[in-house]
Computed example of a mutant assay.
Amino acid sequence: METLEAARRALSVQLEQSTGQKLALERARVENDRAARAQNDLQLRLQREAGVLEQRKLQAGMEEKRLLDRLWDTYGMTHQGALAVRVPVEDAAQAQRRTVQLNQAIQALGTVNLGAVEEFQRVEERYGYLKDQKNDVETAQRELEGVIQEITQEMEAIFRREFARIQAAFSQTFADLFGGGQGTLSLEDETDVLRCGIEIRAQPPGKTLRAISLLSGGERSLVAIALYFAILKIHPTPFCVVDEIEAALDEANGARFIRYLRAVASETQFLLITHRRETMEAADVLYGVTMERQGVSRVLKLDLHQAEALLDGAPA
């Protein structure tokens, strides 16, 4: 009893240490997820700001056009034409004669809007202000587009690098689970990797290479398991929960899945929810829920290694 109690305390200490490590890794994962969400939020915010700036640019262009139309409708002049009229006076006599000619022309025109000059100056100032605003908006838009392009290029580079690693790992895990054959991952559009789909093609032993949609249900499940373990090989986790992942597999493929799971169980702790007997036989510890009486559930635990040791030590 003392030995077992000491062993229990040692295991409790190990459990606390493992729990602390698990919590630390969970916090790291949460921080990474938070950073990824922050980057996504930044990209979305920049896209929204670019849309707002584009709308402001359109509004400024419409305002510019409205002012130029008003200048033309009111005075029959373009902006360049109005600027061309502002000629500096060099000869007073000539300017006097020109004044007389203009006065005659004004009288010929009839009643003249005396506030046209002030109106033109006001419109010109307004035009200059809007033009400066337009230039500022275009500059800000180019800067935002540059930032978005840099973020997109970085995301694309990361995706291509990780996809190549997963692709190589998938080929290996496919061959291990199927006992041979070939599995490939490919992008539907190499020029747009962030938006295109991913095509999975598989060639089980003795069959031709085909799309995953043409495989049987069990083969599709095993291909999905191979892809899952390929991702897990590239980015391993300390703890993994799967729910009846091998339910659609036949007996032979189920045995391959169990052998592969045992091979990688040294790096990741797996918790499997299953109803298959061969999977239960391969487990280290079994947990079950039973209802001894109505409305009362009880969790049962069976350590297969301890049970095997007890059976080996039992008298014949």
Score class of each variant (00 low, 15 high):
T78F: 08
T208S: 14
Y129F: 15
M77T: 02
D176Q: 15
Y75F: 11
E143C: 02
L102N: 09
K207Q: 15
A105V: 07
A6S: 09
F170R: 10
P238L: 02
N103H: 09
T268S: 08
Q80F: 11
F174P: 00
Q294H: 11
T99L: 13
D192P: 06
I273C: 10
E145M: 10
L67R: 15
K57G: 07
F270L: 01
T99Y: 02
G288E: 05
A226Q: 00
T274E: 07
L130H: 12
Q203I: 01
Q80S: 11
S216C: 13
H79L: 07
Y129G: 14
R98Y: 11
A169K: 05
I198G: 06
V85P: 00
D132K: 15
E246D: 14
A50G: 08
Q167K: 14
A82N: 07
L102S: 11
L11G: 00
T152W: 08
E138W: 02
G51C: 04
F174Q: 04
V117I: 09
G218K: 10
N32H: 09
L15T: 08
I258F: 06
L194D: 02
A283P: 01
E267Y: 12
R256I: 03
T191C: 05
A84D: 15
E244K: 04
Q306C: 02
A36R: 15
I258A: 10
L249T: 07
R56W: 05
E199L: 13
A263E: 03
G183Q: 06
R8D: 03
E267S: 13
R34I: 06
T74K: 15
R161I: 03
V85R: 15
T208W: 14
